[in-house]
């Protein structure tokens, strides 16, 4: 198939100036490239500060990318003005992490879900708007009775469903999910993941699914990308990355997950990762992971490894593979 992917990111870079430190910048995202096909899901994982959320926000132009290209449906949107971008926003929506902060507490659920319709003038009439809001509410498992209520009356899971309804009411093609489940209780996380999977099948959506919980990501993703300090260090089909992680960081990350099974290997046997993240203002030269890598060599300290394909759609940025 030579069809153009729905979303294509090339060398996306996002630097933020550091206040009062001359020309120093925070290297939030440094040269990330990936693509998401129609109806596919890319899971982006990594620890806090690795740049995965920044990456999402640069794609949807909350931040203005420093350099690189974002192509939606083949069209380069990186340098479009906000006005030119407006019609394209219908194709691309976002679900946020914090179900408490991402809904305006002074608006009813009806107004919240209806906001995209009004911003784009998408509803033909008042009736049509109300119809579409109620249908959307039903789809996320809420009822007409909920429409007149305020977000603070809802539980976390219900709020997140309102957030999903708001993102999906315009029938976008791409939904960027920025840690949509990390603020929720365990029993609710699965509800949301199932709901997102159902919507994907029904509407043919593509997701960029960002999370730090590797086990949930596996459930929803076709492919998984692992980020470390603003760079993509490993990228492969989902099953592959869990079965054969190649990058030492991915291996460490997987080993760190506490397995909910007391009979399996307990803590002391697993290696995990040691040390802390270096400063993103002065990232280490060479491979950015070498300060914590158990296998680091002289080469790793000097030369930055490029993301190389090692077969089967599995790409990794490590000198040792």
């Amino acid at each position: 198939m030579s069809e153009t992917p729905l979303l294509q990111i090339e060398n996306l870079t996002q630097h933020f100036p550091v206040r009062g430190r001359g020309h120093k910048v925070v290297h939030a995202v440094d040269g990330v490239s990936f693509a998401i096909g129609r109806g596919r899901t890319l899971g982006l994982v990594g620890e806090s500060g690795c740049g995965k959320s920044t990456c999402a926000r640069s794609i949807i132009r909350i931040y203005e990318p420093t350099s690189g290209h974002v192509r939606l449906d083949g069209q380069d949107i990186t340098r479009l003005s906000q006005k030119q971008l407006l019609p394209l926003r219908r194709k691309m929506q976002m679900i946020f992490q914090d179900p408490y902060a991402s809904l305006n507490g002074r608006m009813t659920v009806r107004a919240l879900i209806g906001e995209p319709l009004r911003a784009h003038g998408a509803a033909e009439s008042r009736r049509d708007e109300e119809d579409r809001i109620l249908r959307m509410l039903e789809k996320v498992g809420l009822t007409r009775e909920h429409a007149g209520r305020y977000p603070h009356e809802f539980s976390g899971g219900q709020r997140q469903r309102v957030g999903i309804a708001r993102a999906l009411i315009l029938r976008p093609e791409l939904v960027i999910c920025d840690e949509p489940i990390s603020a929720l209780d365990v029993s609710i996380q699965a509800q949301i993941v199932n709901m997102l999977r159902d919507f994907q099948q029904e509407l043919g959506l593509s997701y960029l699914f960002i999370a730090h919980d590797l086990s949930m990501v596996r459930y929803i993703s076709d492919e998984v990308g692992v980020m470390y300090m603003g760079q993509l260090v490993e990228h492969s089909p989902a099953e592959d990355i869990y079965a054969h992680p190649l990058h030492p960081y991915t291996q460490g990350l997987l080993a760190s997950i506490p397995v909910p099974d007391p009979s399996l290997a307990r803590l002391q046997d697993e290696e995990g990762l040691s040390g802390d993240l270096p400063s993103p203002i002065d990232p280490p030269p060479g491979c950015r992971f070498h300060t914590r890598c158990p296998h680091a060599t002289g080469c790793c300290r000097e030369e930055a490894p490029a993301l190389r394909n090692v077969g089967g759609g599995h790409a990794v940025a490590c000198h040792l593979v």
């Binding site: 029993s187 609710i188 996380q189 699965a190 199932n194 596996r218 989902a238 997987l254 397995v259 909910p260």
Partner: peptide
Amino acid sequence: SIPSIRQDKARRLCP
């Protein structure tokens, strides 16, 4: 409702 890293992916989660 918690997925396991070693579990079959095709199966739906049971929230």
